[in-house]
Design a protein around this nucleic acid. Structure first.
Lengths: 212, 212
DNA sequence: TAGATTGTTAATCGATTAACAATC
DNA sequence: TAGATTGTTAATCGATTAACAATC
């Protein structure tokens, strides 16, 4: 039973991005086909898991052959929604914001940082990495006018909630939150938190655990 | 049955960091006690889950009262290993590396970026955010001499594997990898990957799913 | 054809939730 | 004491793995 019906396990969508990464590497190497067991080995999963994950969305494989690389890559892009370009607003042009603005990985995966906002009046009208910085007061208008649906939040924790509320109000549907704080937003808005210190904490914990 | 015996579910350790975040916020507000249901509400979990998670490590609560905030915060810090300062090496002093170097959240959680390395000879000997940049050739020596056990990898994907191997060789036990590539390291080294484009991809996917 | 590999069902494993006696 | 809340056991839920007929 393909496509609809059963709910998608949360873990599956996370693995889709991994599949796409590896498929793109295989595309670059001009590999024609790949089997579930090859994908599994490369990504540290099991072959059954790979097949089951992909089968949630349709029948992409060929028994006895495997999956056709460009084919499957395109399907996964379509599923993830990165077969088109998403225009993204970046709020916060400090160190982290600037790094994110210059990070080439976003564009490579179909994301374009279309406008940048910062509360610091000294940045007003300046350009960073070729993109003009707007005063934060223009956020609602610009986001609304440009129909932007995704935003990256790279402001201090204290400012995050207020900005998030403005973004929600302006029609943003998803926020990638780098501020280490929980955001209270309407149901219509998805928040995905990236807490950098938390990542290091997890790493330290696992390293210490190995020492038992 | 406390502490040892059963294996720790992976998801539990991830939630420990969340507990600590919230406990630190409560500490700042001078809150004396907190119940499992209050913690659960604040973090979007269930009370039973909070109690069970904490019970893996001991009996920290008081029936009828809840948990003592400073007490529990200290216990969780001890469990996570952030009751001491971890010295961390940063490899890559580009935009992302610089942003990470200036990011205050690391120090707040007990991580100190003790030395920085970059392959670009123009950065050689310069200081960024008050820390001197070493040429990458000195990586092994410095890491070994200073007994550094954690590293942050903020170099281009092409360079990541080579640097990771050097780090492993020099005795590093954990790598926080910002390069979008899988690293092949000895068993003694833990790798925790942070793929920024993947985070945006996941967000876009969930936003699109909501539109069904 | 023989060999390989898929998609899918059933079995297993693990994690979350509900319930409640014990405790303050 | 009465009310609140813990730690823990049993029940439920969900995700992973194994197995295999169908297919190329």
């Amino acid at each position: 039973m393909p496509d609809s019906g059963q709910r998608l396990p949360k873990a599956v969508s996370q693995r889709l991005s991994l599949y796409l990464r590896h498929l793109e590497a295989l595309e670059a190497k001009q590999r024609g086909t790949v089997s579930s067991s090859q994908l599994a080995r490369a990504l540290g999963l099991t072959a059954a898991q790979v097949r089951k994950d992909l089968a949630y969305f349709g029948q992409f494989g060929f028994p006895g052959v495997g999956y056709k690389v460009p084919n499957l890559a395109q399907e996964v892009r379509r599923i993830l929604g990165t077969d088109r370009t998403w225009r993204v607003a970046l709020v916060g042009a400090g160190n982290l914001g600037t790094a994110l603005l210059r990070y080439r990985g976003f564009r490579r995966q179909g994301f374009e940082i279309a406008s940048v906002f910062d509360a610091d009046p000294r940045l007003d009208g300046k350009t960073v990495a070729g993109v003009r910085v707007h005063p934060i007061g223009e956020l609602s208008r610009v986001v609304r006018d440009e129909g932007i649906k995704l935003a990256i939040l790279a402001v201090p924790a204290e400012a995050a909630q207020e900005v998030a509320s403005s973004l929600a109000q302006a029609g943003v549907r998803g926020i990638l939150n780098f501020a280490p704080t929980r955001l209270d937003v309407p149901e219509s808005v998805r928040v995905h938190a990236v807490d950098l210190a938390l990542q290091l904490e997890q790493l330290a914990f696992r390293v210490r655990q190995d020492d038992r």
